[in-house]
Every structure is written in C-alpha cells, then in structure tokens.
Amino acid sequence: MNNAIWLCAALAWPVLAQDARQIVEESQRRGKANSQRYEGVLEVTGADSKVTRKSWQSRRLGAYGNSKAVIHFTAPAEVKGVALLVVNHPDRSSDQWMWTPAIGRDRRIALQDRSTRFFGTDFSFEDLEERDVDQYEYRLTGEEAIELAPCWRIEARPKQSKTSQYTLSRMWIRKDNYVPAQYENFVKDQPVRRLQQRDIQNVQGIWTARTLEITDLRRKSRTVLRLEKLEYNIPLKEDDFTVQALRRDQ
C-alpha cells in the first residue's frame, strides 16, 4: 500500500512541477503591463519601534525580465532627488545605478552588494529586481490559505546562472486572482525576509496589491510600502531609463 502511494506521488511529481511553473507564468501574465507608475509611501518600523517615513515616485517600462525602472525619492527633504535605476535582464541579474544629486554623481550598485538593505528599508537591492520566470526552478509543495484566501504554495530555487542571496523562495499565489499573497525568502534554509501583499485591487484590469509589507525576520523590523496614484500602460520613453537620464533629470 505504502509503495503504491509513493509510486503515485512519484508519477504525479512532473505534473505538479509543471503546474508550479504554469501558475507562476500565469501570475506574471496576469500582472503584466507595458509600463507602470505610482507614488510609493514607505514606512519603516525599526526593532525599537521607531518609525521613519519616505516617499518615492516609481516608473517602470516593460515587465519582468525585460523591464527598466526608475525610483526617485521625493521625501524627506534630505533625500529628495536621489534616484535608483534598475535595468532587469531575462538571463542574469539586474544592473543598478544610484544617483546622488548633491554631489552630482552616479554610482553602480555592485552585484555583490545586492544583498544589502535598500537605503534603510527592509527590502534588499535584490528585492527590487523583477524575477523572470526562467531564472528559477519551481515546485508546488501544497496549498494553504493566506488571510482566508486559498493559495498555492510554491518553492522557487534560483538556477545556477542566477546570482541571488536567497537559496530558496517560498511563495503563496492566490487561486482566485493569481496575485502572490506572500513570499518567504530563505538563506541556507533560514527564513530571512517575508513579504506580504495586501489590499488587492483591480487597477486598469490588473489585480494589484496596493500594500506591501516586508519583514526582516533577523532584524525584526518591517517596512510597509503603499502604492498610490497607481497607473498602468502609460506612455514612457526608453530614453528616460538610462544613467544619462538620471543626470539629465536633475
């Protein structure tokens, strides 16, 4: 009897694996937009419960492995004008540059520095990358409800070609709208960051989480990002997503 169960499980495995990738692909297909723009409000709550706030304006052209994004900080006054350019690639890690207007300099964020925190938030630089579906191996490990919404639980491991601080990402994708409800990122089998996506709304036909809460499980601090004035498929120019544009815009 036991042997029969194992046999069934073994035969079912390729099907489940296929399903996992299909689910992620479907999730990405449903969330895909040619461009995106929003104003983000960040609230970082430190382990000592001290709260700091920042806001930025985000523009993105393209989607997933072929996208480019620029984040311009707008508040507080000390950081206004600081910008980050992220150029995602389908086959490798993204390139990132930071622009600091006060010294008129851009700096490249090295690949090896992607695991560091993104400017005091609980996101890392890597968390700002958009993941191409081909850069990971997927496995459906079960089903589980997140905030009462039934979800598929899928594990994603980066392929060898992908440089990532995470050895494993576990994601929960809602069955009703294919929006990821939660991610848990692991380093050497230890969970280090948890991202919860809430307040899911349909914006221009795309189901989108308007509130992202990321928790640094080691530091015990959390960052909440609220997406305001969110728009999809707006006209954006390719030229605005270059290092030269960062310099020019100041």
């Binding site: 970082v44 430190g46 000592d48 001290k50 700091t52 920042k54 900080f73 507080p76 000390e78 950081v79 004008g81 600081v82 930071m98 600091t100 207007p101 006060a102 010294i103 925190r117 400017f119 005091g120």
Partner: peptide, 18 residues
C-alpha cells in the same frame, strides 16, 4: 550606537548628503 539607528542605518541620508 543605539539611538541613531534610524539615521545611520539608513544609508540614503548618509549618501544623499555629502
């Protein structure tokens, strides 16, 4: 030191202000 965690642990202000 404790207390300035929100400032210095935020490299953004550190980097943004020369």
């Amino acid at each position: 030191d404790n207390g300035d965690q929100d400032v210095i642990d935020d490299p953004l202000i550190f980097l943004a202000q020369p």
